[in-house]
Amino acid sequence: MMKNSIKILAQISLLVLLISCGTKENKSDSKEETHERLTDVTVTQAQFKNEGMTLGSIKESSFPDWVEASGMIDVPPENRAVITAFMGGYIKNNPLLIGDAVKKGQVLITLENPEFVEIQQQFQELAEQLNYLKSEYERQQALVAENITSKKNFLKAESEYKRSVATYTGLRKKLQMLHINPERVLQGDYTSQASIYAPITGTIAETFVSKGSYVSSADPIMEIVDVAHIHLELEVFEQDMLKVKKGQKIKFRIPESSDEFYEGEVHLIGNSLNQEGRTVTVHGHLEHEGRTPNFAVGMFIEAQIETGETTAMGIAQESVVDMGDAYYLLQLQQQEGGDYFFNQVQVEIGKTRNGYTEIKNTADFSKGAQFLGKGAFELIKEGSEGHSH
Rank of each mutant, 00 (worst) to 15 (best):
M1H: 14
M1G: 15
M2W: 13
S5W: 14
S5N: 14
K7P: 10
I8E: 10
L9Q: 12
A10Y: 12
Q11P: 14
I12N: 15
E25I: 10
D29C: 06
K31M: 10
H35P: 12
Q45R: 11
N50D: 14
G56C: 14
S57Y: 15
E60R: 11
E60M: 11
E60F: 11
F63N: 00
F63A: 04
D65L: 12
E68K: 10
D74G: 06
N79E: 07
N79F: 04
A81F: 05
V82L: 12
I83E: 02
A85Y: 09
I91S: 02
K92V: 07
I98D: 00
G99W: 00
G99P: 02
D100W: 03
P114L: 01
F116L: 05
V117T: 09
E118N: 10
E118C: 13
Q124F: 07
E125L: 12
Q129H: 13
Y132L: 11
Y132A: 08
K134T: 09
S135K: 06
E136V: 06
E136S: 08
E138H: 01
E138N: 04
V144L: 10
E146Y: 10
N147I: 05
I148W: 06
K151T: 05
K152W: 07
K156A: 02
Y161T: 09
Y168V: 07
T169R: 13
R172G: 05
K174Q: 09
L175R: 00
N181H: 08
R184K: 06
S192P: 06
A194H: 00
I196Q: 01
A198E: 00
I200R: 04
T207S: 07
F208E: 00
K211N: 06
G212R: 02
G212Q: 08
Y214K: 08
V215M: 07
S216P: 04
S217C: 13
D219T: 03
I221L: 01
I224F: 04
V225W: 01
A228N: 11
L232I: 03
E235N: 12
V236H: 02
E238P: 13
L242F: 13
I254K: 00
S258H: 01
F261V: 09
L268S: 13
S272Q: 15
L273E: 13
N274E: 04
T279M: 02
T281G: 11
H283A: 07
L286S: 09
H288N: 11
V297L: 11
F300M: 13
M313I: 08
Q317M: 07
V320T: 02
A326P: 08
Y340M: 08
Y340K: 03
F342E: 00
F342N: 00
N343D: 10
Q344G: 03
V347I: 00
E348D: 12
I349T: 12
Y356V: 05
E358R: 08
I359N: 05
T362G: 05
F365V: 07
K367E: 14
F377Q: 08
E378A: 15
H387S: 15
H389K: 04
